[in-house]
Design a protein around this nucleic acid. Structure first.
Length: 492
RNA sequence: GGCCCGUUCGUCUAGCGGCCUAGGACACCGCCCUCUCAAGGCGGAGAUCACGGGUUCGAAUCCCGUACGGGCUACCA
């Protein structure tokens, strides 16, 4: 039995839960599940400008919707509370004190202007090193203390160690090695006393015992800096797994310009949470190269870091749509009704929860009609709205022109009406309807198309619709006869 | 400018030196089924494995360059 795996997802509540963040969360979660580890949720809200309570709520809700339950974190508790960085100020101060004691940091009194000037100058000269030149590192302890005592504003910087390389293991990219010559003494504590990301995240990850840091590869360049902090404090350096970016259809960073970018939006658009998890899991990871649809259980049983791909992935909504349709079709009629049909109908104002309770069998019969035609949940309402219209239908003009307003149609509709009226209203079923209507076109020597399409337009208002007989059964004898009567006015 | 990362069908990917005349999925095309639209079944097209050099009996797979794309270089995360 190896060490217990502890992973974490640490979003900054500066916006909704982005698709990329969701994938990171999924990978962390699945990794923990697979190895019986612990999945920790921590809110990295150290940026006071952009972090909000609302965003935190939204992110938490989105994670729950996706079914990514955390073992430790907000509203769940755990041995390392609190799980909000803004509530851990003392922890970072303690860490700073420890670093001071170890002589691994020093105060820096350079003003923002001075730093900007230095940077500018280095840029002009095209220096190979453009980081902080280490001005204040040269100050003696006494000089520095005197300045602090005099109340001069200062930040705390880490001392880049003497050794030549900083190294760490990346489960996706392999062993990484950075030359310390290229690193500068970066800031740990800001002049207002708050920690920077590169400091807070290391302290928390170390204290929370995180063993594997799975996150976006935009952090690769930050990693050696963070490793410096681990080492300065004598903490074990965790393993890393850096995930490539998710891009928009144009190959550029996924942004609002491309449409929906947050999981909240995909929920609104009618995607199933398990589809989002399945699809996102596949963006940068594969089960076996063959299987595209798999359950969360399968994901958890098989997910590992060694099958994560290094290349950035383009988010393909077409494939997402296909997958959503697949999942939808696989639901039982009862589940389909509860999760898809009813939400869609209620949203469209066509039916209510009570309607369903009063007649569940009827509503469940809608599922087979919708399943093969629907990719996202909201598509259900327009597809089935004809079943809920009172009074005369609004007809699709083209459908009427093409199918009803033709010579001989009146007679065919009359025949259909007459035949149907003989069916007992209590027995107005698909079987009876088929048995009644099926022989007519043959007998009259007209094509089935010519016979059925006018009926379809009469019953549904359009030449494009779900199965006719099923629709008729759902509507009932009375309504069907009424609608056939209505449409006759266009027939010749 | 410096450092770092990436590059297999349009897209997601399989591939970790011979099984690859490169496999699967989405999308696309054709046929079948069919009273519409779908769904479904069957089949097809689609990748000189970014490019150029090596290493090797043998490379998509290893090494080195180049190009292109991306990240970092903040008192943002």
């Amino acid at each position: 039995m190896s060490e217990d795996i502890r992973v974490r997802f640490a979003p900054s509540p500066t916006g909704l839960l982005h698709i990329g963040g969701a994938r990171t969360a999924i990978y962390n979660w699945a990794y923990a599940k697979h190895f019986n580890g612990t999945f920790i949720l921590r809110i990295d809200d150290t940026d006071p400008e952009r972090s909000t309570k609302e965003n935190t709520q939204v992110i938490l809700r989105a994670l729950k919707w996706l079914g990514l339950d955390w073992d430790e974190g907000p509203f769940k508790g755990g041995p390392h509370e609190p799980y909000f960085q803004t509530q851990r100020a003392q922890t970072y101060q303690d860490a700073l004190q420890e670093l001071i004691k170890r002589d691994a940091v020093y105060p820096c009194f350079c003003s923002a202007e001075k730093l900007a000037q230095d940077r500018e100058a280095a840029h002009e000269r095209q220096d190979s090193f453009q980081g902080y030149p280490g001005t204040c590192r040269k100050l003696s302890k006494e000089e520095a203390q005197a300045k602090i005592d005099a109340g001069e504003p200062h930040v705390w910087r880490i001392k880049v160690p003497e050794k030549e390389f900083i190294e760490y293991d990346d489960c996706v990219h392999g062993h990484a090695k950075f030359n310390t010559k290229e690193m500068d003494d970066f800031i740990l504590i800001r002049s207002d006393g708050t920690p920077t990301y590169n400091f807070a995240t290391v302290i928390d990850d170390a204290l929370m015992g995180i063993t594997h840091i799975i996150r976006g590869d935009d952090h690769i360049s930050n990693t050696p800096r963070q490793v410096m902090v681990y080492e300065a404090l004598g903490y074990p350096v965790p393993k890393f797994a850096h995930l490539s970016m998710i891009l928009g259809p144009d190959g550029k960073k996924l942004s609002k310009r491309h449409g929906a970018t947050s999981v909240e939006e995909y929920k609104e658009k009618g995607y199933l949470p398990e589809v989002i998890v399945n699809y996102l899991a596949l963006l940068g990871w594969s089960l076996d190269g063959e299987t595209t649809i798999f359950s969360k259980e399968t994901l958890c049983n098989n997910f590992d870091l060694d099958r994560i791909s290094k290349n950035p992935a383009i988010f393909d909504e077409e494939k997402l749509n296909w997958m959503n349709a697949e999942y939808l079709k696989a639901l039982s009629d009862e589940e389909y009704t509860k999760r898809a049909t009813m939400p869609a109908l209620i949203e469209a104002g066509l039916a209510s929860e009570d309607d369903y309770k009063n007649n569940p069998e009827w509503f469940e019969k809608l599922a087979p009609l919708a399943k093969p035609r629907v990719k996202v949940i909201p598509e259900i309402a327009p597809l089935l709205s004809f079943l809920f219209k009172e009074g005369e239908l609004e007809y699709d003009e083209k459908s009427v022109q093409k199918n009803v307003a033709k010579e001989g149609v009146k007679e065919l509709l009359d025949l259909a009406t007459e035949a149907l009226s003989k069916i007992d209203a209590d027995n107005f079923s698909v079987e009876e309807i088929d048995k009644t209507l099926q022989p007519i076109p043959e007998a009259k020597e007209v094509s089935k198309k010519k016979f059925f399409q006018p009926i379809r337009v009469g019953i549904t208002g359009s030449q494009v619709s779900p199965q006719l007989s099923e629709s008729m059964e759902l509507l009932g004898k009375e309504t069907c006869l009424k609608r056939l009567e209505d449409v006759k006015k266009f027939a010749l």
